[in-house]
Design a protein around this nucleic acid. Structure first.
Length: 414
DNA sequence: TCTGGGGTCCTAGGACCC
DNA sequence: TCTGGGGTCCTAGGACCC
């Protein structure tokens, strides 16, 4: 059997690049990519983290995910711009359209990453094709990408991460030793901060050192995830490039509140506002779910969750709200809360679920939810709101991601 | 004015059943 | 009163990804 040829395309500093391109196209003179800059959340709303950074900002030691506050400490003349997800989604869609010209086997892995299985297209040399894709994206769409090429998705992904920006790298089996093994172990896909700490604690600092361990040893120590990363360290992975999206497993929304919530009434209002979005999304996808879970984060950043399995699947905003309210009342200790999140899982398709005669969720309620959805899609989310939110200072519908164009969320498994 | 929001998967313990 | 044991469901928590 011939070796597969997999590409991994990764947009360099995606949000920041897309923001820069958009601004240049709209008459701005400065290219954000060429100055120390970040795309960051609104600090006054306590959303202040770094979502993306320019390469000059990276040189100041600024990291994605750190607070905007500390980024500014590192670089006082940092340019900070707010995110604009609709623009990023459009840029991403354009890139996917371009990639699909090269193969039907294109897997969108996240908003800024994709895999292509190029194995069947032996008529052109894969390196020429990769360079062509990279240059076309730069010329036609205005941003740069890294392309990694390997015999499987893992190695292609590791390759695209090698040196940035605007590069093509290969990582075939015979190159693992030179190109991947010297890297620090936390560069390996699926080795996060916790695992890095454990590995370092036993003297394992490079991917090569992990690769050399005895699999029985790592299994008895780190169980299944240990064996997974050990296989990855040795370049072993063989999942297919999927061009259709896997079924959705859960739908959830959350918000960090701009102030700590210390009373039940306001807590319930946030739950209602989030339930509205979760309900709208599950109905949009024509699904129902029978597990509602609520997770809270307190003012000390400690998170905890409770969930409830229902006898009957639901897609009703009121049911989602009532269950999450019940969960909140049973788990809340009275401490100040900074983040609320609700999600629904145990999903099944609507037509399959709805037939239960015992169903308490009446057809009438269902029709009401759907009617409200239609009005909100047509005239805007705030065209129809619950009166309790009037003059409350709390947004009546909270959360993002209403099927712009359903794109599959990646999972941590390739 | 310090630390987001969207996900997936795995584990472990207790309840319950045969 | 010596305390089986395997399977499934449910729940809470934790790891990882972008």
């Amino acid at each position: 059997m011939e070796e597969k040829i997999i590409f991994h395309i990764d947009v360099n500093s995606a949000y920041l690049s897309w923001e820069a391109v958009y601004r240049l196209q709209h008459g701005e003179k400065i290219d954000l990519r060429k100055i120390p800059s970040i795309v960051g959340g609104d600090e006054s709303k306590r959303h202040g983290i770094v979502l993306a950074k320019s390469i000059p900002a990276k040189e100041y030691g600024i990291l994605t995910g750190e607070s905007v506050y500390s980024a500014r400490q590192k670089c006082p003349n940092l340019t900070i711009v707010p995110p604009n997800y609709e623009i990023y989604m459009k840029a991403s869609n354009s890139m996917m359209d371009l990639l699909r010209e090269y193969s039907p086997y294109v897997q969108r892995y996240s908003i800024d990453e994709a895999f292509i299985d190029y194995s069947c297209h032996r008529e052109n040399h894969y390196l020429d094709v990769a360079y062509q894709i990279k240059e076309r994206i730069k010329d036609e769409l205005g941003f740069t990408v890294n392309i990694g090429i390997g015999p499987n998705k893992l190695l292609a992904k590791m390759a695209s991460d090698l040196k940035k920006p605007d590069r093509v790298h290969t990582l075939f089996y015979h190159e693992i030793k030179d190109k991947m093994w010297p890297l620090p172990v936390e560069k390996l896909f699926m080795v996060g901060s916790k695992t890095k700490r454990k590995l370092n604690g036993r003297g394992i600092f490079t991917i090569g050192e992990l690769a050399q361990l005895d699999p029985d040893y790592i299994y008895s120590w780190l169980k299944k995830p240990g064996l997974l990363i050990w296989n990855y360290a040795n370049g072993r992975e063989n999942s297919p490039v999927k061009n259709s999206s896997p079924p959705v497993k859960s739908i959830g929304n959350s918000t960090t509140t701009s102030f700590d919530v210390d009373n039940k009434r306001e807590g319930h209002m946030f739950l209602l506002a989030i339930s509205e979005m979760v309900g709208m999304r599950i109905r949009e996808l024509d699904l129902m779910g029978d597990v509602i879970s609520l997770s809270l984060k307190n003012h000390q950043f400690y998170s905890y969750s409770h969930q409830k399995k229902l006898d009957i699947p639901t897609d009703s905003t009121n049911t989602i709200y009532n269950i999450s309210k019940k969960l909140f009342d049973e788990m809340w200790t009275g401490e100040p809360i900074r983040r609320f999140s609700i999600s629904i899982s145990g999903l099944c398709s609507n037509d399959f679920c709805q037939l239960s005669l015992l169903e308490e969720y009446k057809e009438r309620d269902k029709a009401l939810d759907r009617t409200i959805d239609r009005i909100r899609y047509k005239y805007g989310y705030n065209s129809l709101i619950r009166s309790c939110f009037l003059h409350s200072g709390i947004k009546p519908i909270i959360g993002g991601v209403v099927a712009e164009e359903d794109y599959p969320m990646m999972s941590s498994i390739l």
